[in-house]
Simulated assay, not measured.
Amino acid sequence: MSKIKVLVVDDSAFMRKVITDFLSEHPQIEVIGTARNGKDALEKIQSLKPDVVTMDVEMPIMNGLEALKQIMEDHPLPVVMLSSTTKEGAENTILAMHYGAVDFVPKPSGNISLDLYKVKEQIIDKIILASRANLRGIKQREKSETIASSQQRPYSKIEVRLLPKDHKKKIVCIGTSTGGPRALQQVLTQLPKHIAAPIVIVQHMPKGFTKSLAQRLDSLCDISVKEVEHQEELKQGVAYIAPGDAHFIVESSGKSLIAHLDYSPPRNGHRPSVDVLFESVSKLSDYEKIAVIMTGMGSDGTIGLKQLKEKGDTKAIAESEDTAVVFGMPKSAIATNLVDDIVPLEGIAEAIIKYTGGQGV
């Protein structure tokens, strides 16, 4: 089995050495070179042809974001960003996900992290995962985003039809992981402002980054998008993203739905967990549910989907392999034979609208 060839990009000689040393210890990884800034990285990519690039964000001459944009235009490669946990660092990380980075790892203590060993296993795992990522999915998203931005939003003319008073209310629940921020942008920007359901979301992401993700999405969407707060009432036409490091549980209270943040142990290594969210939604007897599982590693959401289907009144949508950056979570859901619609990313919003009662004019 050939090794994964990695280019390490960081302006700090110390960081380049630390990252190179611990990556080189792994039997599946070979560091074939290092670069001190984005310009240097672009030149090294041409000559060394790495399989994966690790990219610092803050660098002189050409920073990581500028280099990432150029890489995805000229030589599309899986890129894993190393980012700081400051507010600006979180915002830049979300931008990097939009530009096409497969994943990111937060540095434990700023740009020069003497304790980088704390996230050694995370970096190794994400490099291995990135080496298998579906870059076709990213390129297809770029194409569909370009088409959408040159026109009016594809679903901007969709209206929500009024439902009979005795018709059940609806809730949309979405689970996603690696590749998810960009997938969420593609889906949420196509939903009409007055969609007749609250939208509850688990995106696997560390604490401190989900707020920046929600703020960016809110600036782009017709619907409102926010990081959910404990005991917040959930309203139609609003998308609520679970904060990093907290499970998102939906509870019924009279005629309202209330968000509950829970700090019980991670489920399958995740907090927030898609399974926890879906299981809580399955207990809402007066609601029809639309469950969506998109790109991500592993099987989070599959157990929750089974519970949703056992309780009835659930339509399930999974992202197809063609567009999923990582097909693990959708594949696991599809294997249950409980998924109603298997669609490429650009068709997920339309499927959601179909089940929430929206119709084209």
Rank of each mutant, 00 (worst) to 15 (best):
E58V: 13
D74Y: 06
A96L: 04
K69F: 00
S24P: 09
I71D: 08
A35W: 13
R36C: 13
P76W: 11
M59R: 12
T86S: 14
P76R: 11
Y99W: 04
M62D: 00
D74F: 02
F14N: 03
E25N: 10
V52M: 04
F22A: 10
I61G: 06
T85Y: 03
M59N: 11
E25T: 13
I71A: 03
G33F: 13
D11C: 03
E66T: 06
V57C: 08
A90L: 12
D40A: 10
L77S: 13
T54S: 15
F14C: 01
K17D: 12
G33M: 12
Q28T: 00
K44G: 02
I29V: 07
E91G: 00
P27Q: 07
A13V: 13
R36A: 10
S12G: 08
K69D: 11
K69G: 05
S24I: 02
D21S: 14
Q46P: 01
L23H: 05
M81T: 00
K69I: 04
Q46F: 03
N37K: 10
F14I: 12
L48H: 09
P60I: 08
I45S: 00
S12A: 10
V53C: 05
M72D: 00
I94Q: 14
E73I: 12
T20M: 08
P50Q: 12
S47Y: 04
A41H: 08
L77D: 08
D40Q: 06
I71Y: 02
N37G: 07
M97Q: 08
T54Y: 04
G89I: 07
M62L: 15
Q28F: 03
D21C: 07
G89C: 09
T86Y: 05
P50D: 09
N63K: 12
V18L: 13
K17G: 08
I61D: 00
I45Q: 05
I29G: 03
I19P: 00
L48N: 10
V31P: 01
P27R: 05
S47K: 10
P76S: 13
V79P: 14
I19Q: 00
E91K: 13
Q28G: 01
Y99Q: 04
A67P: 06
H26A: 01
A13N: 10
K39V: 07
I32G: 06
M97C: 05
M72K: 04
V18M: 12
T86G: 04
K49N: 15
G64Q: 10
D40C: 07
T86R: 05
E58M: 14
K39Q: 14
S12W: 08
H75Q: 15
T34S: 13
I94W: 09
I61W: 05
M97D: 02
E43F: 01
F22I: 09
H75Y: 12
I71V: 15
P27H: 04
L65A: 06
S83K: 09
A90I: 11
N92A: 15
M55F: 14
K49F: 04
D40N: 14
M72E: 05
G64R: 01
K69V: 06
D56A: 14
Q70E: 15
